[in-house]
Design a protein around this nucleic acid. Sequence first.
DNA 1: GCCAACGTTGGC
DNA 2: GCCAACGTTGGC
Length: 156
Amino acid sequence: MTPRKRYWLMKSEPDTFSIDDLERVGVEPWNGVRNYQARNFMRDGMQVGDGVLFYHSNTAVPGIVGIASVASHAYPDETQFDPKSEYYDPRATREQPRWYLVDVKFERKLRRTIPLEEIKRHADALGEGFPLVARGNRLSVMPVTAAQWKLLLSLE
DNA sequence: GCCAACGTTGGC
DNA sequence: GCCAACGTTGGC
């Protein structure tokens, strides 16, 4: 039986990797995640074909800018083994990798950015627990319910 | 550039 | 196992 499609939101700083970069390369290994909760979502929750809201953080107008999809199962992030990488983790070994990632595939850009400021106005409808609008808001990979997905994209 | 919020580390 | 110190995230 094919598992039910799930939905996610993934943040990226456009200076590092933007939706335009993803459009250009098509598919990208989502490397550099060094947060256990975010890792667990990728490793334990994601399935090929899941929907991804692509979010630009740390920029003039943070918000959702595009749609992508999960294009692989989780596998070890190569950058953790590379001493020259900024994501190198000396505690990780090939036998016991610490960090996992999935490949993310470009689907489309939104017609316009859905700004965080606008998303916040729908916090009640999204639910208090939605990490993007919860206080702190540092999680870079988070689950999105089907209802939240629908609501967010209706703002486009 | 500032700084609040938060996750991680490491001494004890 | 506690918790202070530290580093990072990310909005503003």
